[in-house]
Design a protein around this nucleic acid. Structure first.
Lengths: 213, 213, 213, 213
DNA sequence: CATGAATGAGTGTTCATTCAT
DNA sequence: AATGAATGAACACTCATTCAT
């Protein structure tokens, strides 16, 4: 089952590819339609056959990419469920790895989404909010189903969502930037460790003193 | 040593205050010099007596604010040091609380810094990077001094910095947005818990099984 | 000789009908070819199989309609001729009624012709001028033939033409706009009265004084 | 009491003068802001210091000019009042002459107003409608005050307004176009004759027959 | 005959920056 | 120091027209 590598891209696809590239390079505001069309190799007017405005193509690109993540959210049945902590760890690791893979396969759009989706006095806030809400729903569902209330330190899904997303977004974009092509397995592992156990200074301290001032 | 509360703001201060306000509302790109001067109540040309360009005032504002955080970094001598885990917890809690207080006292600039400092194809990347590097230095110093290498799960300061900053930035901006005026003590506490111990699903599991699928 | 009411319109007719409609709605400049073809239900390119340009279809429409009026001019043999003033009045009434009927049967085009035919820095001035010249010729012919020079207050046909056309055009378009479907007989009557006798303040004054300040 | 002929025109006046000129030459749609500013001898951006848009300057110009006519309407106390028909004739002649003088002193704007104020699917319809309504009011007031109902052939002011305006507008623009600088006194006289008595075929026919076919 | 995707010149409007007063 | 009128480069978007199929 091979992917058709000799795929002839439609004009719309060419425009989207070019747009992703330039948006990533320059950001939304500094990107000119003329940049996009010249990279796509079509005329100015052609752009407007496919997109009503600069905002629309940006929104389309980001929404589409966001939905890739949301799809993973929706397809995840195991997260906090498992016979023991190792099983749970494995679920989470797997989950994070899938997200990182998507991030990696579309680095430019990913960075775009997390960058411009947040900023700008909220011009595109709704895109990211959508993604965020979807993640909270996921957490809520799994927490309610799989974790006895008294076994969980943090009561509300919202707080957890913020913490976890903070870790995920920052890590993904940072390491992606640093080591251009990164090892998702390894990063997913470290993120899982941190999410489940934090810095683990305590476990490190078993039976002896930390050195002190 | 009292602060002069009936301080008559200089023209430059008026411009900065106005700029912070508008930058926060509209973002850097959408902010017009005319917005700033009209809010500051001065003439268009006056702006250029104090700032060479729109970029410069933005940079000045953000750099100044960033330095507030950096100052806290530099003044922190206790972080991972302490007789027991409770002492360490207290240090970190204190540290986070100080940062949150600064964040809170200048919400607009804070949000600006974390938003636009990251995005924009890196127009202002350096500002945030400066802040980031400073934080890494802090961590490295304290880790090296206070934690025996074999007692620490995560070997490199960089990874930890990314994780911790992710949690901090996201949480601060999110909860600031939600609950307009928030309780820094409480948030610092939750952040400390998460940073030190993660979700604590394992500790919750003492002596019994998690429910399972 | 019956008109085929179940006439299937050709593509060209569809284009013209659509064009009349949109031109009337939006005016020449604001009408887009895309409006016309989409209303006609044909493709963009099809337009250019029948018309060289937007100007051409406009000119064709208006010229054709103008010729309907010109035809009436040419077919009119009685205007100022008659045994007495009543006969003349009847001729003029009949003449105006015929023009109004044409106006009414093609309101959209009529309004178009009188609106845009005049304006626009003269882009289509010639169309209206043609119509105007034709009307002057008519007047000149009938005046010369039927009115003894010394019996006529206004010496030149041109002035009369301007006066009469002013009354006709303005009235037709105004009352057409107001009372959507209007009574041509009645309007023709009033116009005839005004054209022949003016406001008739004097005749109203027979045997008594107008009231005075 | 001499007009200051060495008046230095403000930038706004220069823009308006240029705009009137070009609007008159090319019509509203075909006029480019770049035409206006280059004729006014200022930069592109300067235009927008004084007018929000092309539409606004057009509206300002036309409204201002329309108000010149409206002012005459409002300042007219004698129209249909008078001891005899000659007095009335004189009033009307005077009234028309004043309007024609205004028309003449601002030919370009006048033509603009009557051309584009009417057409264009109503983009600027309201301007002309305002003028029209104002004229109807004038007529109504004078008719009610000065003419006994049974002495007047045409009952409603609206119809008369349409007839009279038709004559005025058409004549003014036509003769203005033909004989560049025209004799307002003479034209006003002819218009008065026509308005009061029509073509006067009947008076011409006193005591003898018109020749007939 | 018909299609409709592609073209690209054209233009209104914005806004950071300058400078004479 | 302060003003604010003037600048002009820059850019998103429109739409009549073409042409390969």
């Amino acid at each position: 089952m091979s992917v058709n590598t000799s795929h002839i891209p439609s004009t719309k696809e060419q425009l989207i590819d070019a747009a992703v590239h330039i948006f990533h390079q320059k950001g939304f505001q500094k990107t000119r339609i003329s940049d996009i069309v010249s990279e796509a190799g079509v005329a100015q007017g052609t752009f407007y056959l496919y997109f009503r405005s600069k905002e629309e193509i940006f929104r389309q690109i980001n929404t589409a990419h966001m939905n890739r993540f949301v799809k993973v959210f929706e397809e995840t049945d195991l997260l906090f469920a498992g016979d023991d902590i190792q099983a749970i760890r494995k679920n989470i690791h797997h989950f994070l790895n899938k997200l990182l893979e998507i991030y990696k396969q579309n680095v430019h759009v990913s960075e775009l989404l997390f960058r411009e989706g947040i900023g700008h006095g909220g011009l595109f806030k709704e895109i990211h909010e959508n993604f965020f809400d979807s993640f909270i729903s996921l957490l809520r569902k799994h927490m309610k189903r799989d974790i006895p209330p008294d076994h969980f330190h943090f009561e509300d899904a919202e707080t957890i969502a913020v913490f976890l997303l903070g870790v995920f977004e920052r890590s993904a974009s940072y390491f992606m930037l640093m080591q251009k092509q990164f090892n998702t397995e390894k990063l997913a592992g470290r993120m899982t460790d941190f999410m489940l156990n934090g810095l683990q200074l305590n476990s490190a301290n078993h039976g002896r003193q930390l050195n002190l001032k």
